[in-house]
């Protein structure tokens, strides 16, 4: 269990660091795909198989392809991202994120008392219970998500469409 977690976390860290440090954008997106697959693996490790499948279906299958399409459509031929890929204020940005990690997140984890074993050893992965839960107590959330996705769909198409010729 720990070995699997270590292997998956190595893949996650490699994927994440390559995403922010690679010069070639398409390679950065491919390492993001590696990251998403490893995160799906972590979900499987934590016995949440429906979420792992949803992660693969949505992030790898749909959002990944969307990002690649956007890279395609905004790719400048001269490759201006070749020389300097870091923005002007990169020092302050790095300082801010390091301080959030070391001053906020890690102390919160360190000083809290967390269980070292899961409370329930074996969870039966059950899609039926998830569906019942979703349709009984989370119906308003489902409606909101439906409206949100419809709005995002229509809005995305309208924003990205080429300007109409009069």
């Amino acid at each position: 269990m720990i070995i699997t977690f270590c292997i998956l976390s190595v893949f996650i860290i490699i994927g994440a660091v390559s995403t922010i440090r690679l010069h070639n954008i398409v390679y950065a997106v491919f390492s993001l795909m590696l990251l998403f697959s490893a995160i799906a693996g972590i979900f499987l490790l934590l016995m949440a198989e429906f979420v792992a499948v949803a992660q693969i279906l949505i992030y790898l299958g749909a959002v990944g392809v969307l990002i690649l399409f956007a890279v395609m459509l905004t790719h400048s031929v001269t490759g201006s991202s070749g020389k300097n890929i870091y923005s002007n204020g990169w020092g302050w940005g790095l300082l801010l994120s390091l301080s959030i990690l070391f001053a906020t997140l890690l102390p919160a984890i360190y000083f809290s008392d967390f269980p070292s074993d899961p409370a329930v050893e074996i969870i039966e992965p059950s899609v039926k219970k998830l569906g019942m839960e979703m349709m009984h107590s989370c119906v308003p959330a489902m409606w909101l998500i439906a409206i949100l996705l419809t709005a995002a769909l229509i809005g995305g198409i309208v924003i990205a469409a080429p300007p109409q010729k009069r």
Binding site: T19, Y86, G93, L94, S97, I100, L101
Partner: peptide, 13 residues
């Protein structure tokens, strides 16, 4: 992972 993401947003152009 959150830190790397945050750093990426603030660092990259």
């Amino acid at each position: 992972l959150f830190f790397i993401g945050l750093a990426g947003v603030l660092i990259r152009r």
